[in-house]
Design a protein around this nucleic acid. Structure first.
Ligand SMILES: [Mn+2]
Ligand SMILES: [Mn+2]
Ligand SMILES: [Zn+2]
Ligand SMILES: [Zn+2]
Lengths: 149, 149
DNA sequence: TTATTAATGATTGCCATTATCAATAATAAC
DNA sequence: GTTATTATTGATAATGGCAATCATTAATAA
């Protein structure tokens, strides 16, 4: 039950390979395994969760390697960090997933992915009005999801 | 050069006192000193920064006490945590300061405080459309401020 | 095949924050 | 005022997530 389709899967691999070449890095068995596990995982996974998933079939792969590769995935642009309060960092797949924000349930911890072009445009206007050049943003709305309210 | 005016200063004290009474806590000299220093400080201060400020006149007050009291201020509603990435938590005064969001300069670290009712309304609509009951939100726009771009 | 050096895995280190604990002091009871 | 209770304090240790270290392994190029 891969989360992304085959085309995006391949695009992610190619994007990472390009980055690896560009930087003079290397393709390794572990990196391949971790990438596949990441792309096949649910959204918003932590390094620990991903390491656990991998440990079954590949107990020789250490946590540090998983963590390092997730950082590499972020650098290469195929993944993105999500930090909520002081919880563990979560990693989200970017290929095949448009930019979005999150509604976060304070009871069950569920993430609902949302997007609103009007909000995005107003954010840009707000930045411009303050002589500020925006790069990225983070909008998190905390509350109760449909199941929990 | 207190950041908030006298009325708000008093309101903050009263709000905290009410919370202390309600919870069966106690007023202490240290708590008083830390509160005054916090209310007289700039916005977005860290526990370490506040402790340093206090240490000059009150070197006997420990860091843990400053940290604990900042946590108490948050519980009582007179302060609020701001967490940026894995940087130190910053504490913002809530009394006398309306809700606002932040433009955060990735170069100099400056915070610009902004507010846009249209964005806030659209956020509420977005939540409602997803059967989600919002409690609070966090909007941070990262980029370059006027001095740094 | 050999040389180079990135990557790995185990471990330690770092750093922000919280927990611990004995001593102190704020409040209530008398 | 005196005493009892217990929240608070300050010093310090513990915690937890993540990065750094380092000897070893292995991917790439010569
Ligand atoms: Mn998401
Ligand atoms: Mn602010
Ligand atoms: Zn929920
Ligand atoms: Zn700046």
């Amino acid at each position: 039950m891969a989360i992304i389709n085959n085309r995006d899967f391949i695009t992610a691999r190619e994007t990472l390979s390009a980055y690896i070449n560009e930087k003079g890095l290397r393709e390794t068995k572990q990196r391949q395994i971790i990438l596949d596990a990441f792309l096949s995982s649910g959204r918003h996974i932590t390094a620990t969760e991903l390491h656990k998933r991998i440990s079954g079939a590949h107990p020789e792969i250490g946590f540090a390697t998983v963590q390092r590769n997730l950082n590499l995935f972020c650098e290469s642009g195929i993944a993105e960090e999500i930090k909520i309060g002081r919880q563990k960092t979560r990693y989200e797949q970017k290929i095949g997933h448009e930019h979005h924000d999150h509604l976060i349930c304070v009871k069950c911890g569920d993430f609902i992915e949302v997007h609103d072009d009007k909000i995005e445009n107003l954010q840009n206007k707000l930045a411009a009005a303050n002589n500020f050049r925006p790069i990225r943003h983070k909008l998190e709305i905390y509350g109760y999801c449909g199941n929990c309210k």
